[in-house]
C-alpha cells in the first residue's frame, strides 16, 4: 500500500529538494545535456596595423593559426569577437583588409562567425563589414547550441532599438533548456566605463537571456583574458594583436610598445567546449603573461 504524504511532509520535501539543488549549484532548469561543440574564440586581429604595439602582427596571427590546426579534437567552429581589422578612413583599404581577413578565416577549414568591432565599423557604420564578412547581428544553430552574434559598436556603445526588437523576437522562439552562446565585441556589462569597456544597454540583453541556465557571453575589445559572472558567464577573448593593461591603475588607455624579448606575451586564443551538459574553457597563449597558466587543450 502506497504511503500517504501529509501536507507538512510534502511541503518539507519540496523545500528540501529546492534547497539541495540551490546549495549544490544544480540549475533548477536543466539545460540539454545532449550535443557537443568545440569552439575556438578569436579576437582583435587589427589586421593592417603598422606600429610599435606589434611589429609583426601577421606572424602572430600565423602562429595562432598553427596552434589551432594542432588542436585535438578539432574544433567545430571559430568565433571572432570583433576588431578584425585596424580602422581606416580609406574605404578601399577597409575593403581590402576585410577581404584579406575573410580569406584567412576561410583557411581555418571550419565554419566561423564574427561580430563587428568599432575598428571594423569605423567610417561607414559597418557597411563594408556586412558586405564582406556578414550581417552585423544574427542567430545561428550548430551542434545543438544557439549562437547569437550582436553588434554593440557600429551605432555607438549600445544595441540599437531595431536590433533589440529582433533579439527579443528571436529569443522568444527558444526553449527554456536551450544552450546559448552570445557574441559581442564590447563587454555587455560595465567592466570599465572610462575606457568604453561596457555596453550602454547591455542589461537588456541579460534580461532577455535570463531564463536560460546554459549560456556563455563571449566578448573581445579588452585584449586580455577575463572572466566575470554577470547575467551568466562572460569571457573575454585573447587578442592576436597586442595586450592591453588591466583597468584601474592607468587613467588613459594606452598599449605599450612590443618587447623584444617576449614579443607574443599575452597573445593567443581560447577554446570553449560544450559537452556533457556543461561549458569548459581553456586559454591557449603563444606566451602566457607572468602568473598565468596557459593550457594546451
Amino acid at each position: 500500500m502506497a504511503k500517504r504524504w501529509t501536507r507538512r511532509q510534502f511541503l518539507g520535501g519540496m523545500a528540501l529538494t529546492v534547497l539541495s539543488a540551490w546549495a549544490g549549484g544544480v540549475p533548477l532548469r536543466r539545460a540539454r545535456a545532449a550535443g557537443r561543440l568545440r569552439a575556438v574564440h578569436l579576437s582583435d586581429f587589427h589586421w593592417g596595423y603598422r606600429g610599435a604595439y606589434n611589429r609583426h602582427p601577421e606572424a602572430s596571427l600565423q602562429a595562432v593559426w598553427s596552434r589551432i590546426a594542432a588542436l585535438s579534437p578539432k574544433p567545430d567552429l571559430a568565433v571572432v569577437t570583433g576588431d578584425l581589422i585596424e580602422a581606416t578612413g580609406d574605404a578601399a583599404q577597409r575593403q581590402a583588409r576585410l577581404t584579406e581577413v575573410k580569406a584567412l578565416l576561410d583557411r581555418l577549414g571550419m565554419p566561423w562567425h564574427a561580430v563587428p568591432g568599432e575598428h571594423d565599423a569605423f567610417g561607414d557604420g559597418g557597411q563594408r563589414f556586412e558586405a564582406v564578412i556578414g550581417p552585423r547581428y544574427y542567430h545561428r544553430r550548430l551542434g545543438g547550441v544557439e549562437i547569437f552574434g550582436l553588434d554593440n559598436v557600429s551605432r555607438g556603445p549600445f544595441l540599437d532599438p531595431g536590433q533589440l526588437s529582433w533579439l527579443e523576437h528571436e529569443v522568444k522562439t527558444l526553449a527554456d533548456d536551450s544552450v546559448v552562446l552570445v557574441l559581442s565585441h564590447a563587454p555587455l556589462f560595465p567592466l570599465f566605463i572610462p575606457w568604453n569597456w561596457y555596453t550602454y544597454n547591455g542589461d537588456v540583453v541579460y534580461r532577455l537571456f535570463r531564463r536560460f541556465s546554459a549560456k556563455q557571453f563571449l566578448f573581445g575589445h579588452i585584449h586580455q583574458a577575463l572572466d566575470r559572472v554577470q547575467g551568466g558567464m562572460n569571457r573575454a577573448g585573447l587578442p592576436t594583436s597586442w595586450p592591453l593593461p588591466e583597468p584601474g591603475p592607468l587613467v588613459r588607455l594606452e598599449p605599450w610598445p612590443q618587447g623584444a624579448t617576449h614579443p607574443e606575451m599575452g597573445l593567443g586564443f581560447r577554446v570553449l567546449d560544450w559537452q556533457d551538459g556543461q561549458f569548459q574553457e581553456a586559454s591557449v597563449y603563444l606566451e602566457p603573461p607572468p602568473g598565468t597558466l596557459g593550457v594546451a587543450p
Binding site: A87, E118, G123, P194, R252
Partner: peptide
C-alpha cells in the same frame, strides 16, 4: 582630454 582615442 580623452581617456580613450577614437579608432583612427
Amino acid at each position: 582630454q580623452a581617456l580613450v582615442l577614437l579608432p583612427n
